[in-house]
């Protein structure tokens, strides 16, 4: 499960070339909002050419334009034959998911960014090709004509709702990006809140946000140390249940510790 999903404009060669050095678990090469209409063709060509020649050790998604945009089919076909990890679909709804699923076999990460999509979230996320959901809070609040604030009170319910939906379906819930580029303190508060509500990762619109997101959504040093102690004790006792620091430890807790250590290893923390 990835912690960070970094958006990279599809028309910036230098950033695309460096897509695998920002430490983001996943990158989303963007053909939608960050690319002007006159640059869409060039961006498609650039993303395709680069991915055909280079792949770093990170998950790569491509955000295509929405199904009604007029760019949808060209975006899909531009990278459909490449080994990408999936498409990110903006303005998602059940019909759009069906349309994209019909056009490709790749996994889909829908962006939930309008009120109806929030209400339809379960139907969207339960689709077998859908591998999680991203909250798009900027568009959502724009649609609802409400102020987007730094404490996120206006999206509190939506975050909780999407977290419930995704956890019920055992799929990742990826929180909306923090858009104030230089406010890392604000990002830390925002990401902590999202994590406490059930987000499993967070999107980012700037590479400098990635390290903080990885820290907050990855296993903490203390959690890793605890897990290591649990596994060591389990190995030492050879029993299905044992006591550690006065607490009973059984197989589900041992298994959770194993997963946490595996995640730590994946994130280069061990």
């Amino acid at each position: 499960m990835s912690r960070s999903y970094l958006f990279i404009p599809g028309n910036t060669p230098s950033m695309i070339q460096s897509h695998d050095v920002y430490d983001s678990d996943a990158v989303i090469l963007d053909l939608e909002d960050s690319v002007a209409v006159y640059d869409k063709d060039a961006a498609r060509e650039l993303v395709r050419s680069f991915l055909a020649a280079h792949r770093g050790n990170v998950e790569v998604f491509v955000r295509i334009n929405d199904v009604d945009s007029g760019h949808f089919h060209r975006d899909v076909s531009a990278v459909d034959d490449l080994a990408i990890n999936g498409y990110v679909l903006p303005k998602a709804n059940p019909q759009a998911i069906d349309a994209l699923a019909k056009a490709c076999n790749h996994p889909i990460l829908p962006i939930i960014e309008d009120p109806q999509a929030v209400l339809d979230a379960y139907a969207i996320v339960r689709h077998p090709q859908v591998k999680g959901a991203i909250l798009g809070a900027e568009d959502l609040t724009k649609e609802m004509m409400i102020e987007r604030t730094s404490d996120g009170i206006e999206i509190h319910h939506v975050r909780s709702h999407l977290a419930l939906v995704c956890h019920a379906l055992q799929k990742p819930f990826i929180d909306t990006p923090w858009t104030v580029v230089d406010d890392l303190d604000g990002l830390a508060k925002d990401a902590s809140l999202a994590r406490s509500l059930g987000a499993t990762g967070k999107a980012a619109i700037h590479p400098n946000h990635v390290a903080l997101i990885n820290d907050l959504f990855g296993p903490s040093e203390s959690a890793i140390r605890d897990a290591e102690r649990i596994l060591a004790k389990a190995s030492e006792t050879g029993k299905g249940a044992f006591r550690l620091d006065g607490k009973m430890i059984d197989e589900p807790i041992v298994e959770k510790a194993r997963r946490l250590i595996a995640a730590a290893a994946r994130y280069n923390k061990r």
């Binding site: 950033m15 460096s18 050095v21 920002y22 430490d23 230089d182 700037h206 590479p207 400098n208």
Partner: peptide, 8 residues
């Protein structure tokens, strides 16, 4: 610097 490569 705040350039991501420089930061890295």
């Amino acid at each position: 610097t705040t350039h991501p490569i420089g930061v890295r």
